[in-house]
């Protein structure tokens, strides 16, 4: 397995202490009780693709109302891990998993659980912006309600609220009836965030949401993430150390040494960037990897 940090350029120009100061510059948060629910925990998650064991024994607690960044070289299983959380992993033929994902204390893999309800509670934003091409901007935002056959009293209010929270309202409020494909990449990604918010998830999973975007859009989305984290639990996969430092309260470092990916350590983001406990974490966050 090739293990090269993908954003070498950003990292080599950054000293660990400056990342740590970025991480410390934002208000300290432990996760708040204003968020709904008691949170999300994973217990002993393993994952396989066919016979290929790609993820081993991941135990992570995501405090309600906090942002957790998952970092690590590509191929170490970050995407696979977050896809086990909202049960998207099972869509891949030959996929298997072990362990428990506890949402408010209940295992999402327990028999009899309605998997579509789980995905309503745990929303997801993908790496590539993927607005629905046959729908207008407005229809895109509200598409989750139709897909899940949910009723709301006032669609217009919900539409505006979601677009405002995703930081897109002022840019699109005059063209809600045009197609999402006419937006820029960054706007499309914020549209996808708005779409995920409309079904009011308590957890939002984001898999490298900014990797296809320009720096301006990236900063806007980071602002959005900070604002959203007051009311929901956010898990974000990122290859950008700066981004992890800027947006996350906690950071977990994943690594695969040829075998299945493992979680090396998890701690407050400021600690990961200033005094990581594991030598491999330090090597990775300082760009001295491999």
């Amino acid at each position: 397995m090739i293990q090269t940090p993908e954003s070498e350029k950003t990292m080599s120009s950054t000293t660990p202490s400056s990342l740590a100061s970025v991480a410390q510059a934002k208000p300290e948060r432990n996760g708040t009780n204003s968020a709904q629910g008691t949170g999300l925990e994973t217990r002993g998650i393993h994952a396989w693709f066919g016979k290929n064991h790609v993820l081993s024994d991941i135990n992570l607690d995501f405090t309600a109302g906090s942002v957790t960044a998952l970092i690590g070289p590509s191929g170490c299983g970050k995407s696979t891990f977050i896809r086990t959380i909202n049960r998207m992993h099972e869509f891949i033929p030959g996929a298997a998993m072990a362990g428990e994902v506890l949402l408010d204390g209940k295992d999402v893999y327990a028999p009899g659980v309605d998997v579509t309800k789980i995905r309503l509670q745990i929303g997801m934003v993908f790496q590539k912006p993927n607005p629905f091409p046959s729908m207008t901007i407005g229809e895109n935002v509200l598409s989750g309600l139709k897909l899940a056959q949910l009723k709301v009293d006032n669609k217009d209010d919900l539409l505006e609220e979601c677009l405002v929270r995703a930081g897109l309202w002022t840019e699109v409020k005059d063209r809600l009836n045009t197609h999402g494909g006419s937006l820029s990449g960054g706007q499309q990604q914020r549209l996808c965030i708005a779409r995920a918010l409309a079904v009011r998830p308590q957890v939002l999973l984001m898999d490298e949401p900014c990797s296809a975007l320009d720096p301006g859009s990236t900063l806007r989305i980071e602002d959005t993430i900070r604002e959203l984290s007051d009311t929901m639990t956010i898990v974000i996969v990122t290859h950008n150390m700066q981004q992890a430092a800027r947006v996350s309260d906690y950071t977990a470092f994943f690594l695969s040494d040829g075998g299945p990916g493992e979680m090396i350590e998890v701690a407050r983001t400021s600690e990961i960037f200033s005094q990581p406990k594991d030598q491999r974490t330090e090597n990775y966050v300082t760009g001295r990897f491999g």
Binding site: M88, F91, K117, R119, G123, M124, N130, S143, A196, V199
Partner: peptide, 9 residues
Amino acid sequence: EAGTALGGT
């Protein structure tokens, strides 16, 4: 995937 992730069957 986006459709299913939004809670659609």
